[in-house]
Amino acid sequence: MTGSFTVRAPASSANLGPGFDSLGLSVPLHTTLRVTPQDVTEVVPLGPELEGTPADESNYVYRAMLLAARRAGQPLPPARVEIWTDVPLARGLGSSAAALVAGIVAGNELLGRPLTDEVVLDVAAREEGHPDNVAPALFGGIVVATLDKLGTHYVRLDPPANLGVTVLVPDFELSTSKARAVLPREYSRADAVHALSHAALLAAALAQGRLDLLRHAMQDYIHQVWRAPLVPGLSDILESAHEYGALGAALSGAGPTVLCFHDTRGSTAPLHAYLNGVMARNGLTGRVMDFGIDTRGTVVERD
C-alpha cells in the first residue's frame, strides 16, 4: 500500500461495574499514528504522554503492527510511524488497548487490508487477553464481547439518547497487573449469580435506554470491592455519587479513573463539585471531565 495515512483509535472504559472483561464503551480521547511508507523503519513517539517510550521496533505500537503481519502471513513493509496520544497512561482508560488497536489497524492498512475487522478484533483481544477495551476502541459505542477458543464475538450498541460520561482521572498511575493481583482466585456462587444478573441487566438497560436502571445494574462484587483500597475515595463515590446527579458509577477498567454516567439534559456541576471534594478529602489531585460516548471507533484517513 503506497501513500501516507493516519489512524486514530479512541480510549475506552471497561467493565462498567459488573461487566468484568466483557463490557466497555469508547471515550473521545485518542491515540494517533501517522504512517508513511519508506525504505527503512522509523518509530517516532511524540508529545509528553509518550516521553520515555521506545523509539525503535520494540515500541508497543510497532509490535502491534507486526501482529497484523503475522496473522496475515506477510512481511510488514518498512515505514515511518509517528505516534502521539492524549489518552492518559495507566489510568484505566484503555491506553494500551488504543495503542494495540491503532497498531494492528495500521499494520493491516500498510499490508493492503488483508484482515477483516472481525479478525483485527480477534488479534487484539487475544493479545490483550480480554475484549472489553479493544472492542469499543475498534468499533466505538458500547460493546459487549466475549473471547473463547472459537473466536471473539461481540454486539455493538449505539449509546442511549441523553447518556453522557463524567470521568475523574486522578494524578497517579495504577498498573493493571497490580489491580488484577488483588482479585481473589475463587468466588462464591452468590457473587457469581450477582455478577451474571447485574451484567445482564446492565447490557439490557443500555440496549433499551433505561437510564433509570443504571445505578442498580452497575453494582459489582467481582472486582470493585477488592480494588477499592487501591483507589482512595472509590467506595464513597460508588455509594453516594447518585445523590449528586450520577446515573451510575464504576471504576473505569482497572482504575484509578472513576466513571459516572450522567443525563446530558441536566447540569453536571453538582457532580463535578462532589468528585473534586472526594479527591480533596483524600489528598488527591486530578481532573474531572465530561464526554459524550465516541461512536466512530478507529478511523483511517488517507492523504
Rank of each mutant, 00 (worst) to 15 (best):
A200L: 08
V105R: 08
L25K: 12
F261P: 02
A90E: 09
R70D: 15
R71P: 01
Y154H: 14
V44G: 06
V44K: 09
A195C: 14
T36N: 08
L100I: 04
L174C: 07
D158S: 14
N59R: 05
T298P: 01
L214S: 02
W226I: 00
V7I: 13
L163C: 13
F139V: 03
V231T: 11
E109T: 15
T31N: 10
G266P: 00
L251P: 08
V43C: 00
V288S: 09
H272Q: 11
A228I: 06
Q208G: 03
I222A: 14
I142R: 12
P232S: 10
T166R: 14
C260P: 03
L284K: 06
G297M: 01
L271N: 04
E128N: 02
V43N: 00
E51H: 12
V119C: 04
D290P: 01
H216V: 07
W226T: 09
C260H: 05
A199E: 03
L89E: 02
G266Y: 13
D56E: 03
T6E: 14
E243K: 08
S267T: 12
R302Y: 07
L196N: 06
S12E: 05
L230D: 12
H262N: 04
L93M: 01
L25Y: 08
H30S: 10
E186V: 05
V40R: 07
A249G: 08
Q219F: 06
H198N: 15
L251D: 10
I222N: 02
S235F: 00
P229V: 02
R63K: 15
I142L: 12
P184S: 13
Q224L: 04
P256A: 08
S175E: 14
A250C: 14
R287P: 00
I237S: 02
L168D: 12
L211W: 08
D56S: 01
I142V: 15
L115A: 14
V278D: 01
Y274I: 03
G141C: 06
A179P: 08
E82Y: 00
A135L: 06
A179H: 07
A217M: 10
F172A: 05
R287F: 01
L213G: 11
H130A: 07
L206P: 05
L66E: 15
L76A: 07
L121T: 11
W84F: 07
P229W: 08
T295S: 13
V105E: 11
I83R: 01
T176W: 01
L111K: 12
E239N: 13
V35Q: 07
L23Q: 05
L234Y: 09
I104M: 07
A190C: 00
F261A: 00
D294T: 13
Y274M: 04
G283Q: 01
L76M: 06
S177A: 15
L163W: 11
E173C: 04
A192D: 04
A137Q: 08
R189H: 09
A179L: 07
L89G: 01
L138P: 10
L110H: 08
L157K: 06
R302G: 12
A200G: 15
H130W: 05
G52H: 06
A181S: 15
L121N: 10
L259E: 09
T176P: 04
T268M: 08
S175G: 15
L230C: 11
T2Q: 15
P28Y: 06
G209I: 11
